[in-house]
Design a protein around this nucleic acid. Structure first.
Lengths: 209, 209
DNA sequence: AGGAATATTTACCAATCGGTACATTAATCT
DNA sequence: AGATTAATGTACCGATTGGTAAATATTCCT
């Protein structure tokens, strides 16, 4: 058993003629715009600039390719989410989340919306695994925000009667709704108004102005 | 040219052996659970209890069948939306909308979520027409709510500095987010907590207790 | 230079997709 | 009864789906 990484670049043999990360980026754009099932292999191959056997050799199959694009998505376009948890107050946490979501979901450089929301929301049985993987990603975000809001409550940042689980669910619902709005054509300014509406009524303490 | 309705029942010929409305109801369930593209014709035929030629003779094609199921959806599971606009105050309007959405999206008798949200959120080019039809339905709801909130503002129900368009977009985003939450497994009680969170911070006047 | 190992290309696979031709069945109209 | 009209069941259509076998090309190692 080799001790090298799972996907270590081989030292012998013909070298890969394409950049895996760039190809993954292109695949992400296709999945983002068309969803997991709506993206066909010819769609993906054309965007990635490779052909099917190369895709399968490099990424396994369509499902594994999708899961790898989601990893990339979480590290790039959606990279605002988890760092936002480290802000000082619950207000700033959700401000960064909601504004990050507004910017990302309506970024003209990328497809509209959020691939974790629209990648496999309703689909055939053959996509069940992918659908549940996305559900798990969404719930993981909610759980993490809930933990952060519980901390805020313990610190006196949120009022005693507040329910961190309900607040986290509410914030995630707004973010997911913003993704739907973006696919319907809402622009960044319009989504930021949604974020501002949430912020103006947030029960947590405001940062000192 | 006959003056009768477009789909008038013929008086001669072999009578239809199934109930069109019940078949439409079954088709709606399939589209609701799997989305427009994820629902195959065999899926639909099996659920509807008919075979393909009957489906095509009765409903045209898959796209027209889908559009007719959406009509049914708006008149049945989603029938809470437009009547809510007629409540006396903006608070009661959004209360009925959000609670209706919570009940409908997480009704154990039906598939989770909202078919207008998840029917064709991200899909291939061949479903573009359906996708845009659903976008139009969502925006129509937002426009209608916006008009109602403008009325509320004019009546002094909402404060002078409030922005009805932004508030309507916010409420629709929450409802669409609730649909995503429902497809992720959230139950009615959990969705009602989201509704309650919105209501507790609503800027409109409360009904006299 | 000559393997060994890996990537790419072309061509193909069975299964499924949405949709339909055709023959049959069941009703009404004359 | 016979003609007419429409719905049903079977069997099929070309196109597309995700996925792969086999031949060829390009590299590193000895």
């Amino acid at each position: 058993m080799s001790a090298s990484a799972v996907t270590a670049a081989p030292t012998v043999g013909r070298p890969r003629a394409f950049d895996m990360e760039k190809a993954l980026q292109k695949a992400l754009e296709v999945f983002w715009r068309k969803g997991y099932e709506g993206a066909s292999l010819p769609d993906l191959c054309e965007a990635m600039g490779i052909n099917k056997p190369s895709l399968y050799a490099a990424f396994g199959n369509k499902e594994q390719l999708f899961l790898k694009t989601i990893e990339l998505y979480e590290n790039r376009p959606c990279a605002f989410f988890y760092p936002a948890l480290e802000k000082e107050s619950s207000y700033e946490v959700i401000k960064h989340m909601l504004c990050g979501a507004a910017s990302s979901n309506a970024d003209p450089e990328n497809p509209p919306g959020c691939v974790i929301v629209q990648g496999a929301l309703a689909c055939s049985e053959s996509a069940t695994f992918v659908k549940e993987a996305l559900i798990a990603k969404r719930r993981a975000g909610e759980v993490a925000l809930c933990a952060r809001l519980e901390q805020a409550k313990a610190e006196g940042d949120l009022p005693e009667q507040s329910d961190p689980a309900a607040l986290a669910r509410y914030i995630l619902a707004v973010m997911q709704g913003m993704a739907v709005q973006a696919t319907s054509g809402a622009n960044c300014a319009e989504l930021k108004q949604v974020a501002e509406t949430v912020l103006s009524a947030w029960p947590g303490k405001r940062p000192q102005l």
